[in-house]
Write a protein that binds this DNA or RNA. Structure first.
Lengths: 220, 220
DNA sequence: TAGATTGTTAATCGATTAACAATC
DNA sequence: TAGATTGTTAATCGATTAACAATC
């Protein structure tokens, strides 16, 4: 039973990865997979796969395994791939433009219905078939629409005020690209993409690797 | 003692966040902070902060707390902010250009020394003061240089081969922006930025929030 | 010194892994 | 049916939190 039991973030964050692997299997025309096979491909335990999936339902069949296509669809449904989210991009700089051009997002149910900026060089420009509007028009724009998610690609200093503004206008999900933790007075879901954090972790791990390599080399 | 005990990824991934908060405190001219105060700002426990920091050393002083500037510097050192990493950007599309324009990375010790692409429209173009070179020149380029990190912003299909290629030429760190898990035959550190995974998690969390909100509304 | 807060050990909690009965 | 593999419970492991002695 999928029911009401709380699902941990650890499990939730693994779902897109399962989804990717199942998509790959589908492309390879593999129609059936056991938790053991999948665990070997993904480098995790079969136990974890079965535990994770059973948070949402019994998608497998004893003695057989999992049907790849139906499991793919089930996870897609859980993730809301068929739910159609209305999305706006705020900030049409390089990052905003990069996101506007990712066709993958549309495939996953995220429809970009508006791109906004304040820079007169960008306002009016067409990106991936959509005209950049001035942010002043946003309030009017949102009036007769449901906007689920705002992708925040504005400069660092402007991020808090823009986030607060769109949250006050009813946007419920924020995808934050600025290296800060947003504190918003409204009840919104915030998902962060902290690029500099990620890069610094890479730096740390790399440094450790080089240190260990040098140590191993010296020992020889 | 910082010594040899293995530090968990959970701790490592929190370091950049500590670094950001300490940087903010510095900007606010706050020179001293206790684990308790910091825990309130960050929304974690004071215990966790003390445990995390003591993986690397005793940076505090009993009865006083932590000196913000020195702790900031210590964590910076741990993360390698002063280490100077040589970085190349592979793929000069919107994402590559966005990364090339992030001045923050340079500040954190990541020096972008080359940008490469195969698109003749982009080769020769100047981005943030650096000329885009053709990827064919990369092998020659790397010959007399140490390149620590390659930022992989090439199209999805090209990512595995480009990653393999640069790893074979001695690049030890890969920052992967394609929604896939790279399997590389060389010993490299891979850090992923899986944007679509992050967005799908946002979609899931948003869907759950709306579901719960509707449920609470109905109960009233 | 008295008060405050660390560093660190011990307790708890949650997540992962192992085991196995259920069942296709 | 026999073999395979799930769903699920139990055991283990690791990470977080609590507690407190050390000490500034």
């Amino acid at each position: 039973m999928s029911g009401n039991k709380k699902i941990s973030m650890a499990v939730i964050r693994r779902l897109p990865r399962y989804y990717r692997y199942l998509s790959d299997l589908l492309k390879m025309d593999i129609s059936k997979i056991s938790s053991k096979e999948l665990s070997q491909r993904m480098g995790i335990t079969a136990s974890q796969i079965r535990q994770d999936l059973n948070c949402f339902g019994g998608f497998g069949q004893q003695g057989y395994g999992y049907n790849v296509e139906s499991l793919f669809n089930e996870i897609g449904n859980i993730l809301g791939v068929n739910d159609k989210f209305n999305v706006v991009i705020l900030g049409a700089g390089n990052m905003g433009q990069a996101l506007a051009n990712y066709s993958n997002f549309e495939k996953r149910g995220f429809n970009i219905i508006g791109i906004f900026d304040v820079n007169p060089d960008l306002v009016g420009k067409e990106i991936n078939g959509k005209k950049v509007l001035h942010f002043d028009e946003f309030e009017e724009f949102i009036k007769n629409k449901r906007i689920d998610i705002a992708m925040l690609c504005v400069p660092y200093e402007k991020t808090p005020s823009v986030a607060e503004k769109v949250a006050s206008l009813g946007v419920k999900g924020l995808w934050n690209f600025s290296p800060m933790d947003l504190k918003i007075s409204h009840d919104v879901i915030i998902e962060n993409v902290h690029l500099s954090d990620s890069l610094m972790v890479l730096g740390y791990r790399l440094k450790e690797k080089l240190r260990k390599d040098a140590l191993a080399e010296a020992k020889k």
